[in-house]
Computed example of a mutant assay.
Amino acid sequence: MKLRKTLISLGISAATATGLSLLKVNKDLVVGSTAVVVGAGLMIALKDKIELNKKARDYEYFFNRAQDKFELADYEEAILDYNKALELSPTEICLVYSMRGNAKRNSGDFEGAISDQNKALDFDPLYADGYFNRGIAKFKKGDFDDAIEDYSQVIKINPKDSDAFFNRGHVKKEMGEMKGACEDWRKAAELGDDDAAKFFRENCE
């Protein structure tokens, strides 16, 4: 079973700043005289920019720390940092939910993992990694039919996703459907997956 390699780090970028500019922020500026009114708009804009930049830095700090903890298999601590990142209203909310779901899956909380992938997909029904990662959780939970549906959805979104073909083949093998498994591994091999080619040679020829 292949896992998605989504251990990325975020840096403050123009794209992040642009996305964060869409977030609602509190404006607590008090204007005490008409002399200040002229510059009030500029002051508010500057204060908003500072708040947004701080929010971006705080979000990235907790998200990146969560990624580091995930890589070290410290899943419980990673989940706490993903929670904090989510509180800071990230624009990459699908990614955070999906990664938190992966941490829950790796700690044995399959229901929680599926719930988080569902939340990611609620924000973006075409988020392929959400289906992919949910498929892994469903497989580990023993819901093979549902796992196949998720991998099929990934393939529908991206017909060249060799990992989805490989994993779907693995699920079919566990269900005793070797013909379907071999078809998926052959397709994955055609897309350049060496592991799939090896599985095909060992199980299908």
Rank of each mutant, 00 (worst) to 15 (best):
L72W: 00
E177G: 04
N102C: 12
D195M: 01
L46T: 15
F110I: 06
R100G: 02
N118C: 05
L46M: 15
V37P: 03
I114Y: 08
W185P: 09
S98N: 14
R65A: 05
D195H: 00
E76V: 14
I93V: 12
K198N: 10
G130Y: 06
M43D: 11
Q117P: 08
K104R: 14
F166A: 03
G19L: 09
L126R: 13
T16M: 15
K173E: 15
R4P: 06
G19C: 00
N158V: 04
L72Q: 10
D145S: 07
L10S: 08
T6D: 15
A78Q: 10
E51L: 13
P159V: 12
A189I: 00
A181H: 08
D146N: 12
Y82A: 10
A197E: 01
A35D: 07
L52R: 14
G112A: 07
C204P: 00
D193I: 00
R4M: 11
R201F: 05
K179D: 14
A197K: 00
K5D: 02
R134E: 12
A73D: 05
A14L: 15
L3A: 02
L42W: 01
A103L: 03
F132H: 06
Y75W: 13
D48L: 12
A14Y: 12
I93W: 07
N158Y: 02
D161W: 11
N53E: 15
P90M: 02
R168Y: 04
A189N: 07
K172T: 10
G108P: 15
G101L: 09
D48C: 04
F199A: 11
A120E: 02
T6Q: 14
N118V: 01
E149Q: 14
I12P: 07
Y59T: 12
D28S: 15
K138I: 06
I148A: 05
F199Q: 11
R186K: 11
R65Y: 13
V25W: 06
R201N: 13
D195W: 01
D150M: 02
N102K: 03
K84S: 01
I50F: 04
L29Q: 08
K141P: 02
R105M: 14
R65G: 06
I155W: 10
A78N: 10
K138H: 06
E149W: 04
S115K: 09
K24G: 10
M175I: 09
L23G: 02
S98W: 09
A66S: 15
D163H: 07
S107N: 15
D109W: 06
T16K: 11
I114C: 06
L121N: 04
D146C: 09
